[in-house]
Deep mutational scan, measured.
Amino acid sequence: MAAGGDHGSPDSYRSPLASRYASPEMCFVFSDRYKFRTWRQLWLWLAEAEQTLGLPITDEQIQEMKSNLENIDFKMAAEEEKRLRHDVMAHVHTFGHCCPKAAGIIHLGATSCYVGDNTDLIILRNALDLLLPKLARVISRLADFAKERASLPTLGFTHFQPAQLTTVGKRCCLWIQDLCMDLQNLKRVRDDLRFRGVKGTTGTQASFLQLFEGDDHKVEQLDKMVTEKAGFKRAFIITGQTYTRKVDIEVLSVLASLGASVHKICTDIRLLANLKEMEEPFEKQQIGSSAMPYKRNPMRSERCCSLARHLMTLVMDPLQTASVQWFERTLDDSANRRICLAEAFLTADTILNTLQNISEGLVVYPKVIERRIRQELPFMATENIIMAMVKAGGSRQDCHEKIRVLSQQAASVVKQEGGDNDLIERIQVDAYFSPIHSQLDHLLDPSSFTGRASQQVQRFLEEEVYPLLKPYESVMKVKAELCL
Rank of each mutant, 00 (worst) to 15 (best):
S31W: 00
L423D: 07
Q375S: 04
D32F: 10
R459E: 10
P378S: 06
Q210H: 05
L255C: 12
S359Y: 13
N353K: 12
Q63T: 11
E417M: 11
A431E: 14
S151T: 11
K82W: 11
P24C: 09
I265G: 06
L444W: 08
S151E: 10
D59G: 11
E80I: 15
V465F: 02
V413D: 06
L252A: 13
T244V: 00
P16E: 10
T167H: 07
E376W: 10
I358P: 07
N274L: 07
M387L: 10
Q286W: 02
Q456C: 06
A49M: 01
D192W: 10
I269R: 06
H217D: 13
A411E: 04
Q375I: 09
G4Y: 15
D59S: 11
D192V: 09
T330K: 05
V115T: 12
R404E: 03
L165G: 01
A163P: 01
R141P: 15
T450K: 07
D317Q: 08
L174K: 04
L406P: 01
R329G: 04
F379E: 03
C98T: 12
P153K: 00
S454C: 12
I139E: 04
A2R: 14
S454E: 12
E280G: 03
A344G: 14
S31C: 07
R270E: 06
R125N: 06
L152S: 06
Q63C: 09
R426W: 09
W175F: 00
E417Q: 13
S448R: 14
S151H: 09
L131Y: 09
L319A: 01
C399H: 07
H91Q: 15
W45G: 10
E383K: 00
V414T: 04
N357L: 02
Q61K: 06
G200P: 00
I123F: 04
L469P: 03
T239M: 02
R309P: 00
V92H: 00
W39Y: 15
L271I: 13
R125E: 00
L186D: 05
L17R: 00
P16S: 15
N274M: 12
S23A: 09
T201E: 03
L155P: 02
C266K: 01
W43Y: 03
F232K: 03
F195V: 04
S448E: 14
N353A: 13
E64M: 08
I237G: 09
R20H: 01
L130T: 13
T166A: 04
L482R: 01
L155H: 04
P133N: 11
R374T: 05
D332P: 03
K134G: 13
Q320G: 10
D87N: 01
A47R: 01
R196L: 13
A260K: 01
S31H: 06
H159W: 00
M278E: 05
